[in-house]
Computed example of a mutant assay.
Amino acid sequence: MGVYPVFIGCAGWSIPSRFSHLFPAEGSHLERYSRGLPGVEINSAFYRPHKPETYARWAASVPEGFRFAVKVPKLITHERRLADPAAALDRFLGEVRELGDRLGPLLVQMPPSLAFRREVVEAFLGHLRDRFDGEVACEPRHPSWFNEEPEATLDRFRIARVAADPVPDGCAGEPGGWSGLVYRRLHGSPEIYHTDYGAERLAAITATVRADGARAPTWCVFDNTALGAAPENARTVWSAIRSESGNPPPL
């Protein structure tokens, strides 16, 4: 593996029955998943809050070294569109802090219609950084985000810009913003959420992630979950990376 930690995972820890052999047989879905992959993205936090005790229970059920990335609620990003975030951030962060040392990056996904407005973005990121000093990745999707000023703004607040597939704009397929974290989200292409990446593309993803891990802590999240391809795709990449280090992933 690289010099820095690499986390390969999925958006959610569902394990389709046809891929159950890739994970341990015993335990809850999360317990089984966490012994076969090193990280997961809690995508459900985007749609609804979870009780602090739920996060604490999840943290207690995974091995040391496993990490949860958590998606910031759509109330903040899509409904309020970053305005007046203080109360909602306080509630969300109060919940996710129960993950303790299992907490990885926060993911801030912007709606496709949300253009970059410096004053609004700086105010939001200021509120966020006043409350949270850990890793953060931002996934903008409006074309106005992919130029010099937004990149500099994200860098100033230590926010990595997600490298996404499919690519919503010219440079969005490569990491940007703060260089201290690489965060890739692979939604499936050409058919978003559905396409299985296949052996050739997974080999290329493995090489890319390996190079990422040589320069920064790295996350690669498979979100092609609609037909259940994500766990197998993630497991293939993680197995290749671990095998190259002489450390095959456990079952």
Rank of each mutant, 00 (worst) to 15 (best):
R117L: 12
V96H: 11
V167W: 05
T236Q: 02
N247G: 13
S20D: 14
A216T: 15
R118I: 08
G228S: 08
N147A: 15
D196E: 04
G27F: 03
A160H: 12
L75T: 11
G134C: 06
E232F: 04
R117K: 11
E174M: 07
R91V: 12
D84E: 15
C171D: 12
A160T: 08
H194M: 11
P248M: 05
F132D: 10
G228K: 12
G2R: 11
V237L: 07
R48F: 13
A226V: 11
A115D: 10
G180F: 07
V221A: 14
A229V: 00
L37D: 05
H50C: 08
W238G: 05
N43H: 06
V108T: 04
A45E: 01
A230Q: 10
L103Q: 09
Y55I: 07
C138E: 05
G39E: 05
E191R: 13
R80N: 12
R102L: 00
L251A: 13
E122L: 04
R67T: 10
R57Q: 14
T153K: 09
V136L: 00
Y33A: 02
D196C: 05
L93S: 08
V121I: 07
E139W: 02
L103F: 11
A203L: 08
F222V: 13
D84K: 11
L106S: 09
H194T: 12
P231W: 10
F132A: 06
E41F: 01
P105M: 13
R18N: 14
H78S: 01
A87N: 12
L75H: 01
S245C: 05
G27V: 04
D130E: 15
P150A: 03
E98P: 07
R131T: 04
R118G: 02
